[in-house]
Design a protein around this nucleic acid. Structure first.
Length: 501
DNA sequence: CCATGCCTATCGCTTGCTAA
DNA sequence: TTAGCAAGCGATAGGCATGG
């Protein structure tokens, strides 16, 4: 249709998980039901809780968690100051080898030692049961690909290893997380882990860090990414496929999506389906978030660090020699995590029966995997919406329907509590008070308040009041307006009186 | 001493989301 | 479908400096 324009790609993207839910077989639905009882298990593991902790440096130079630091009154020894120092010494020791994480850790230790001689002893056994964040993580061996010639060489080697399953991930800059990755986002790097056997010249079992900000590198990898017979597994394939498509790379050779596989394995996970949660739980591999590794406290006007942690632009984390080693480790860690998770989920699904003689992994391979590929095609195409003629009509109709439903609700609610006529029907808190005020929570002794007071804009009040008078047939036209103003004045006087008390 | 302005932190409520 | 969570936002409290 000539007037139709493309819209709502985000809508399609969001429909992905819903569609996957709809695909559930009866067997799966039953499984989901049975798992509800698991809700009682601890939501957060000890590891996850520790990873979320922030760290400070005490006067004696030792690392302490923020809670402990506050208790000692040591939280004023700003850790951002130390972090800068650490980076300065990391710079001084010339970051040239790929051994970034260890180097940065050493730099931090140097800085800590400089802060106090007592730190030397403390360094061997840090306060608490773990060392700070990121450097707890296993270090992944890396083969860096940073120029076109090397990219061509490595991509050719990959093309010769179609028997392997290659786990891939990307890091992306210039992305608005609230919007679809189609048409926005710049791929900074691709990371690949193909198992312990692949050796591209620097030894077996290395992960690849492919720097796509260098000219010609992505082009050199394009043939492998577009190679149907090279099976690549991802965590949330759609996202990576779309951002790569922005660069003219049409990824095919879909080997699997660990997010979808996890959904098939357990469709009712309270912890969700993030790579971090799944790898921690299924392969016992903790992950520290980007914000915790690279976040810096926002400086207040007076220069002292504030409480808000900000993430620098991601392209600068990759480009700066101070952060690049940690960045490479971070990126590669996810690719290896995806590979490990794939293997684990393959094993778990293979142990689950489907059609008596077959397994849920067969089901995944035969149905969900091709459907996963199809879904990304659908997302790419989007949904045609006739914005000029159909959409305004649909909107008008939807709004009228909603207004009518709201009026019905107000009439009903006001029969029980007069003030409910004026409530914000979109507020969960207000609806909760109306329906459950005075009730006791199932899991605790807490009793929901029987009565709560909510603020209301004068204009909104007047509008609702007019609607109320109209609905109850007490007044019409100008009369209603006058009544509303009167009521508003009464309400304002009451509020003022209450404020004085 | 008080008023004022600027700033940050925090609170309560709404909203959107369940991935990245 | 649902509960629970967290981001975002406006309102507000409180710290601090300045100025009369």
């Amino acid at each position: 249709p000539e007037n139709a324009i493309m819209a709502s790609r985000g809508l399609v993207l969001r429909a992905t998980s819903l569609l996957l839910c709809l695909l559930m077989t009866p067997g799966l639905a039953w499984r989901g039901l049975a798992l509800v009882g698991r809700a009682a298990r601890p939501r957060t593991s000890r590891l996850a809780a520790s990873a979320r902790r922030t760290w400070a440096i005490a006067e004696d130079g030792r690392w302490v968690s923020s809670a402990a630091a506050t208790a000692r009154g040591a939280n004023d020894v700003g850790w951002s100051g130390l972090s800068r120092e650490a980076r300065a010494s990391s710079d001084a020791s010339s970051v040239t080898d790929g051994d970034g994480a260890r180097l940065a850790a050493a730099a931090r230790e140097t800085a800590a030692a400089a802060a106090s001689p007592a730190a030397e002893a403390a360094r061997a056994r840090p306060v608490g049961d773990f060392t700070p964040g990121f450097h707890d993580q296993e270090e992944v061996g890396v083969h860096e690909v940073s120029d076109a010639a090397e990219a061509r060489r490595v991509a050719a080697l990959l093309c010769a290893r179609d028997e392997l399953i290659h786990a891939c991930d990307t890091e992306v800059a210039d992305l608005d997380l609230g919007r679809s990755p189609l048409g926005q986002g710049r791929v900074l790097c691709i990371t690949v882990y193909s198992g312990p056997d692949l050796d591209v010249g620097s030894g077996p079992g290395k992960a690849l860090f492919v720097d796509t900000t260098e000219p010609g590198v992505l082009e050199a990898f394009k043939p492998w990414l577009e190679r149907e017979s090279a099976l690549k597994v991802w965590h949330n394939y759609g996202f990576d496929r779309h951002v790569l498509y922005n660069h003219g790379v049409d990824v095919v050779g879909f080997g699997g999506d660990t997010m979808h596989m996890a959904r098939l394995w357990d469709a009712s996970r309270l912890a969700g389906y993030s790579l971090a949660a799944l790898t921690e739980e299924l392969v016992g591999r903790a992950k520290v978030s980007m914000k915790e590794i690279f976040g810096e406290p926002k400086l207040r006007k007076d220069g002292t660090p504030g409480k808000i942690i900000e993430l620098p632009p991601l392209d600068s984390l990759q480009a700066s020699p101070l952060t690049r080693p940690d960045w490479v480790q971070y990126a590669v860690y996810d690719a290896k995590g995806t590979w490990l998770l794939y293997r684990e989920l393959e094993a778990r699904l293979s142990r689950m029966e489907w059609l008596r003689t077959r397994s849920l992994f067969d089901f995944y391979t035969e149905y969900w995997r091709p459907f996963g590929e199809l879904l990304t095609d659908m997302e790419r195409a989007g949904v045609m919406v006739d914005v000029r003629s159909k959409l305004p009509l649909a909107q008008t109709r939807a709004q009228a329907d909603r207004d009518a439903a709201e009026l019905t609700f107000r009439k009903w609610a006001a029969r029980y509590t007069e003030a409910a006529w004026y409530m914000n029907v979109g507020s969960g808190t207000q609806v909760q008070t109306l329906l459950f005020g005075g009730a006791t929570r199932r899991n605790s002794a807490e009793v929901l308040p029987l009565r709560r007071t909510f603020k209301l804009e004068r204009a909104a009040f007047e509008e609702l009041h007019v609607a109320r008078l109209r609905a109850t047939g007490h007044a019409h036209g100008a009369e209603a307006g006058a009544a509303a103003r009167e009521a508003a004045a009464r309400a304002a006087a009451a509020t003022a009186a209450a404020a004085k008390m």
